[in-house]
């Protein structure tokens, strides 16, 4: 197991955002966490990334305890995060954005070879090397955000609602990209509201409701679960 989370509790003041969340992600897996708005998906990602501090429970990455460690430590251990809402640097060029992704000690040395790898993965970014990131389309910005995250050479990459605000055609493309990233050997933890597509893509999935994991299993199994179909896919009775 590359990531093991046990009994994680997170509070914002008195409001509980995560309630004894436990989950596991195996090396090379693509795991989806699905749920409605406000279910705690983003909170979970942010807690793993070290941006929020949990009140209880533990997070282990590659066997080492990272519970409550600050984000810059977690990042440097090899957990990359594509934050919600395409947090790119709009006034920097594509190339500079990618360079910013490689500022961790673990990534600095291989900057140029990684850059080539990212450009070959996203030829569109290579064409727009010198363009200001803020002037690109939403889909291209999302690619850039992913590319920049890859520049940090993570072993586990977490996506927080990557399809948010993208046109349906682009969402298709995005999910293909996530699959490609996973096939290249990276472990992926995907948080999504787009339940059908992410469960189709994922090896395994977890359903989160009100800060609790209510269901888990293979993507296929969850897709055919009556409860999931009724609650998230708008089909059933």
């Amino acid at each position: 197991m590359i990531l093991e989370i046990k009994e994680l509790d997170l509070y914002y003041g008195d409001a509980q955002a995560l309630d004894r969340v436990s989950l596991e992600v195996g090396q090379g897996e693509l795991v989806a966490i699905v749920g409605a708005n406000g279910a705690g998906k983003s909170s979970l990602i942010r807690t793993i990334a070290g941006i929020e501090r949990p009140r209880g429970g533990s997070i282990r990455f590659k066997g080492g305890d990272i519970t409550g460690k600050p984000s810059y430590v977690v990042c440097n251990l090899g957990i990359g995060q594509v934050a919600e809402g395409r947090q790119i640097f709009p006034t920097l060029t594509v190339q500079e954005n990618l360079e910013m992704g490689a500022l961790l000690p673990r990534a600095r040395e291989k900057l140029s070879s990684e850059m080539e790898r990212v450009y070959s993965l996203f030829p569109r970014l290579a064409e727009r090397r010198e363009q200001f990131a803020g002037t690109m389309s939403g889909g291209e910005q999302q690619m850039l955000a992913i590319g920049r995250c890859l520049m940090g050479q993570p072993e586990l990459i977490m996506f927080d609602e990557p399809s948010l605000g993208l046109a349906p055609a682009l969402v298709q493309e995005l999910f293909q990209t996530i699959r490609k990233v996973n096939e290249a050997g990276l472990t992926v933890l995907l948080v999504e509201q787009n339940v059908a597509m992410s469960l189709k893509l994922a090896n395994r999935g977890y359903v989160i409701e009100n800060g609790r994991i209510v269901l888990s299993g293979s993507g296929e199994k969850l897709l055919h679960d009556d409860g999931v179909r009724q609650a998230y896919l708008g089909v059933g009775h």
Binding site: F89, P90, M100, L103
Partner: peptide
């Protein structure tokens, strides 16, 4: 300097800077 680039990242987007592993504090 490195600090200059980190500041730039923090100024442009603290969330992104944090996600990149910059010790923004």
């Amino acid at each position: 300097s490195r600090a200059g680039y980190y500041w730039l990242a923090i100024r442009e987007s603290p969330e992104a800077a944090e996600a990149l592993g910059i010790n923004i504090f």
